[in-house]
Design a protein around this nucleic acid. Structure first.
Length: 588
DNA sequence: GGATCCCGTTACGTC
DNA sequence: GACGTAACGGGATCCA
């Protein structure tokens, strides 16, 4: 049951009820998903019994905002949300209000309790509470019927009240029910992880709010340059040498041109058995046309995915990425709109990422954190010694596998060592290893060579082999309460189907590394309250005042790497720039 | 019949 | 291994 609150008297009454409720759920309905381009048009609350829908349009601005403050700024109140980072952004952007109460989030709870299915509120409530709410269907139905009429400037606020409000009224009620359901299990199994994740959630909120400064005039000029290069490449390298024009962006047409018309032998097939035209296949053909297509691909990736999209997403010279704590199975962060974690390593692109005047961008990264985790989990003495004495791990791997002294390892051999180390962490088979090594070494490596390398590797590092076997067998054993699963040292659980037990090693290492970074970020926030700008898995960017000393930066680096319980040294590297990302210089 | 939407596939950027 | 984004292309759907 919900109440649509329309008068000041009703609002006052609701205010009394909510002020007296120590635990409430809060939700917003907005005109869009991007907070920096949308407004809240509806607030909804629930105390678990009564649900209140409050439309922004029905109230005087200051009356409404006073009401919101009286509830959401109450530091003693527990405020529960479903992905409340979203509501916090919208609340701030629309009303300039911050939630000051203690925050809990059911999406984070859902993810800890089950990382393999959707964390979306209604499906989750249906699955674990058996409560099915179909009010959303009416909203969808109405949208479907009416969206055709004026799809240009569409938003949720146009859905009629009698359809939208029952749906909006349900959400906070469901949220509080799910919270009550999950809380005992979270307390029992994931208390520490949940606490850390909530703190990281708050840091991410700040990071997104701060945004990344981008140089729009530069991007615009870079776009023009790229477009020119792409045209020129198509004309002079691809079409000229082929003798006709075609759609270079179409894998189908590329295959037609290369394998039917130009009659090159097919180097490889895709997973579905189609003649492949990916970079590896093109690399096998020595001719200007495939070379031109390779160039075209990397240039248009840069242009569309980064250069154009960044300009479209920027507001006042800032892009505001959306980080998620619940979209990976391992506990890593993910990021979208834009994905600030996979911005191409390309100086011309990274020049576009600037820093505000008076500040300097600083990057720290945890060196080889996954290798440290690998050594720690496998307890391999050679690896542990190498990490303790600072020996080059990848060269050492090559030396061990090839049975020769480290100082005689060539560049290519080291690359193979590095590739193999990563492959072991990833848990790949020989076919994938071969492809992977080829990329690293820069020449074609056959499956047999890769398999041989892997075999020698496992002989040289028997503990790694034992570790793999142990993880597999732990997963194979069906156990309570999670079925087939592994758990990392932070207690993060990955439920894995027994047939896919090989992914267990990867989960332990990758998830452990992710939890290490989260723990470090929390420590850094608590000690320094810095301006958070970016996270790239094992690296962070903070923008600090230009007069910040190297000593302070080193203190931050220490927090990023100082984990006595790991019993292995973790190192960090530090970079900074007062201009842009392409200009960062290592600080020693 | 033609425009539009959806979804699987292919490809490629990061750690 | 873990992701997110873009583009294509075939099939389904909508609309006139």
């Amino acid at each position: 049951m919900y109440y649509n609150i329309k008068t000041s008297d009703e609002l006052t009454h609701v205010q009394q009820i909510l002020i007296n409720s120590s635990k409430i759920a809060y939700d917003t309905e907005t005109t869009g998903l991007k907070w920096y381009r949308s407004k809240v048009f509806l607030h909804s609350f629930s105390n678990g019994e009564d649900n209140f829908v409050i439309r922004v349009a029905n109230f005087n601005k200051s009356v409404l905002e006073n009401f919101l403050r009286s509830i959401l700024e109450d530091k003693n109140k527990l405020i529960i949300g479903q992905n409340i980072k979203f509501d916090r952004h919208h609340l701030r952007h629309t009303h300039g209000i911050e939630i000051l109460g203690q925050i809990c989030d059911t999406m984070l709870m859902s993810h800890l309790m089950d990382e393999n299915t959707t964390t979306s509120l209604k499906p989750r409530c249906k699955a674990v509470l058996g409560i099915a709410m179909d009010e959303k269907e009416a909203v969808d139905g109405w949208l479907k019927e009416n969206i055709g009429a004026n799809k240009e400037k569409w938003d949720f606020s146009l859905v009629p009240e009698h359809i939208m409000d029952p749906y909006a009224g349900n959400d906070p009620w469901l949220c509080i029910k799910l919270y009550d359901h999950y809380l005992p299990s979270i307390e029992k199994h994931f208390r520490q992880l949940y606490e850390t994740d909530m703190k990281v959630f708050d840091i991410l909120y700040k990071m997104e709010k701060n945004g990344l400064p981008v140089d729009l005039p530069y991007l615009k000029s870079f776009q023009a340059i790229l477009e020119e290069r792409i045209e020129k490449n198509k004309k002079e390298n691809i079409f000229f040498n082929f003798g006709a024009e075609f759609d270079v962006d179409s894998p189908m047409e590329v295959a037609e041109v290369l394998y039917k018309k130009m009659k090159f032998p097919v180097p490889k097939l895709t997973d579905k058995g189609v003649n492949s035209t990916d970079d590896e296949a093109l690399g096998q053909i020595d001719h200007p046309v495939p070379k031109g297509i390779q160039q075209h691909r990397s240039m248009s990736k840069l242009l569309t995915t980064y250069v154009i999209s960044l300009q479209e997403q920027a507001v006042n010279g800032l892009v505001h990425p959306d980080y998620s704590l619940t979209r990976t199975r391992t506990g890593r962060l993910s990021c979208s709109d834009p994905n600030a974690q996979n911005l191409a390593k390309n100086d011309e692109l990274r020049r576009a990422f600037t820093v505000d005047p008076g500040e300097e961008m600083w990057f720290w990264d945890q060196s080889q954190i996954e290798m440290v985790g690998f050594a720690m989990y496998s307890k391999d003495s050679k690896m542990i010694n190498a990490i303790k004495t600072g020996v080059d791990l990848h060269a050492m791997t090559a030396a061990e596998v090839l049975n020769k002294p480290v100082d005689q390892i060539t560049k290519e051999e080291r690359a193979m060592g590095k590739g193999t180390n990563f492959a072991m962490i990833y848990g790949v088979g020989k076919a994938k290893l071969a492809r992977y090594l080829s990329e690293y070494v820069g020449r074609k490596i056959e499956d047999t060579e890769a398999a041989g390398f892997k075999g020698k590797y496992l002989n040289a590092f028997p503990m790694v082999y034992a570790f793999q076997r142990q993880v597999m067998s732990v997963i194979q054993m069906y156990r309570e309460p999670w079925g087939h699963f592994v758990k990392n040292k932070f207690g993060r659980v990955r439920r894995i189907e027994s047939q896919k037990a090989y992914t267990g090693v990867n989960h332990l290492i990758q998830g452990w590394a992710a939890d290490m970074m989260k723990a470090a970020m929390v420590k850094i926030e608590e000690k320094f309250h810095p301006k958070w700008v970016q996270n790239i898995h094992d690296a962070i960017r903070l923008d600090l005042p230009v007069n910040t000393t190297v000593e302070i930066a080193r203190d931050i680096g220490k927090l990023l790497t100082d984990f006595p319980e790991v019993e292995l040294p973790i190192k960090y590297t530090m970079e900074r720039s007062q201009t842009n990302w392409a200009e960062v210089k290592e600080v020693r």
